[in-house]
Amino acid sequence: MTTLIVICVLALAVVVFVVSIYNKLVTLKNRFENAFSQIEVQLQRRYDLIPNLIETVKGYMKHERETLEAVIQARNQAAGSLKTASQNPGDAGAIAGLAGAEGLLGGALGRLFALSESYPDLKADKNMANLQEELSSTENKVAFSRQAFNDAVTNYNTYKQTFPPVLFSSAFGHAEDATLLEFESEKIADAPKVQF
């Protein structure tokens, strides 16, 4: 009888322990997914601003259609990747796709701003100045929420790679490491710097 009770208690203790690991994995995963929704809000805001930017710029830069179209195309592509990534922020491919698309968009925007340097009227436009400010402040917010996301991802990855969680993580559906979101190409991580 005593042995039965001892076995029951031991089994129960193990169950409680494993359940706590499971819960912690879920909590950490939720945390980084939540952090991604922060990035999503800011990136979405940026994508919403770009059509306004193009609208403003179009009147001045009549001969730069190619550049403008490149920006629009990059913006649409990035918006698409964002949608895919927000479905599953833990998916390495989706995150890499978003990072690539963001890199392209950053490059296209950079070229647009560089070109705008040679249009004095455009530089004097108040609407343009507002949009610039808005874009660069959104850029700061993206960078900041990206840092929070990467911290949360690192936390999650570290936890599931340590012992004992490493024994259970794949059984509980946490096999894949989450991927850090880095915008390395074309320096999108910095705000586009355009002097007026």
Partner: peptide
């Protein structure tokens, strides 16, 4: 036995 089993299960669920 009851105390331990019920207590642990409750605590786990509350946590």
């Amino acid at each position: 036995g009851t105390l331990i089993v019920v207590g642990l299960a409750s605590l786990g669920r509350i946590a």
